[in-house]
Design a protein around this nucleic acid. Structure first.
Lengths: 282, 282
DNA sequence: CATGAGCGATACCGCACGGGTATCGATGGG
DNA sequence: CCCATCGATACCCGTGCGGTATCGCTCATG
């Protein structure tokens, strides 16, 4: 199977619409139809059920979408890593670390500081990204190592080490009635109808339906909290970054959050190994 | 990057010779040279150092070879798994299990028997293959699950569960002087110059240099042992398959062998999950 | 029920690119 | 010193990919 065919299929499978998929790919619709037809003939399996009104995935199509995405990521990863190896050999060795913007920032600072003190350490490029985006950067080779948070981020297929486990707090406007409580439970938050739970975009960039405001970053969310328009549930360690117009109250029954450091399973990099060892000593 | 280019590069990187690589790919040498050149231009990185007498890999080339192989395997895996999903949907669901021919055969029999008794179990195709070949079958999607043996088989990148850990025995001709001993150590075997250690082919099909006979299968090796031409070191459980012209003596300082069941980390298959659960109960 | 809009498939065309042959230029062995 | 070996270059050809035009089907609409 050629990677071009697979890219075409993934586009159609994600859009479930030949016209939009073709637009996204920058080609016309007819060659796209043909390419998919040819792919199906070559595989000897139907991937899509089409009517003139809708396109749906068959069983085989679902599998090819899932497996195909990881294959395309692996292809990109090979490309990126080879390019970075070339740059490293040319005298600018660097490690790229992906982290969620605004999360674990104290821990991250400590880690970078401790690693820089290690013998033989190299420059670390920190990529701060949208929540959930680190996983993809690691899968497609743009990053060498990532800081992830279970259970929010998916870690299947990576090697990981746990760095820290912590509880979660609700961040509330200082003036809110719940702000005086010593502890809270998830039910208290669900009952506070004046403070809806914000909605984050999924991996595909769309928002789930619901009442809460749509947010894309933690700073944006924090501002909504201080304006009394939303509440935020986040790991304990976020307290160090709060301003004094908001209050953090422990949520007793919220799931524990584990900060992990993750790297691709075939990594042969000495630098990654050292960074992980440093992280475990924190 | 296109998969065709990557396949071409991997061929050249493995052969380290444009002519032979072209032959293996079924194309002429000049288009291959051009394709590699174009790939290097697109990546902006030299992958090969060529003289008219030799071809060697650069740093970036080494990385691209390693990462590229896994990317190509992932691509093949997507293809195979989609095809199998189509066949399964057409009413012949099956699970493909890869195992080393001649190893853990009792355990395997028990596993298959126990799994068949599970509610909702499906047909299991057993692929018996050359030692070390299971890994590749699992990586490129021809198998859904594999029985591997640490530390011999590489399990990085798979999800695994340990089934059994056992010591190793030396299998010797019944008439040999060492055959009367109750226990042995690796040094004893190294000193027995009349019984050289056999040489297995590497993943590339070539044999390491050395004095021992070249072997490809366990039956072949067992025959050499009973002829007094080689010795064999294998897990305890192989005893059940030995004929009475050979003797098994425990080797005290040989590494412990762990039989593990492994599956690709993104597997969503109910059948794989059931099989693994069954294996853990053995 | 007729009509038109929306969508995927088909027909057909042109050209870019992948692959072929011939040959060059460099390098090392006899 | 010459020839064998090997990768690169020059040049040509055909296939296959992408483009436009259009068809055929389905459903929403009045």
């Amino acid at each position: 199977m050629e990677s071009r065919e697979l890219r075409y299929f993934v586009a159609v499978a994600e859009e479930l619409h030949f016209g939009r998929a073709a637009q996204r790919l920058g080609i016309a619709q007819p060659p796209l139809s043909r390419a998919i037809l040819q792919l199906e003939r070559r595989l000897g399996a139907a991937l899509l059920r089409r009517t003139s009104r809708s396109v749906t995935l068959t069983e085989a199509g679902e599998v090819l979408l899932r497996e195909g995405r990881t294959a395309l990521d692996a292809l990109e990863a090979a490309e990126h890593r080879a390019q970075r190896a070339a740059r490293a050999a040319a005298g600018r060795p660097a490690l790229v670390l992906a982290a969620k913007a605004g999360a674990s920032s104290e821990l991250l600072a400590k880690l970078l500081h401790a690693y820089a003190a290690e013998p033989g350490s190299i420059h670390v490029d920190v990529m701060l990204c949208r929540p959930g985006a680190q996983e993809r950067l690691l899968r497609n080779g743009q990053a060498d190592v990532a800081v992830l948070h279970r259970p929010f981020d998916e870690t299947t297929g990576f090697d990981t080490e746990e760095i820290l486990t912590e509880g979660q707090v609700a961040v509330l406007p200082a003036a809110h009635t719940l702000a005086t409580r010593k502890t809270l439970h998830l039910k208290d938050l669900a009952d506070a109808e004046d403070l809806p739970t914000p909605r984050w975009p999924g991996p595909d960039g769309t928002y789930p339906a619901g009442p809460g405001p749509e947010v894309q970053s933690h700073t944006q969310l924090l501002q909504l909290v201080s304006l009394g328009r939303a509440l935020m549930v986040a790991p304990d360690s976020c307290r160090s970054q709060l301003r004094d117009d908001v209050v953090a109250v422990p949520v007793m029954d919220a799931p524990k959050v584990t900060t992990v450091i993750a790297w691709p399973p075939h990594s042969r990099s000495q630098a990654v190994a050292t960074l992980v060892r440093t992280a475990l000593r924190l």
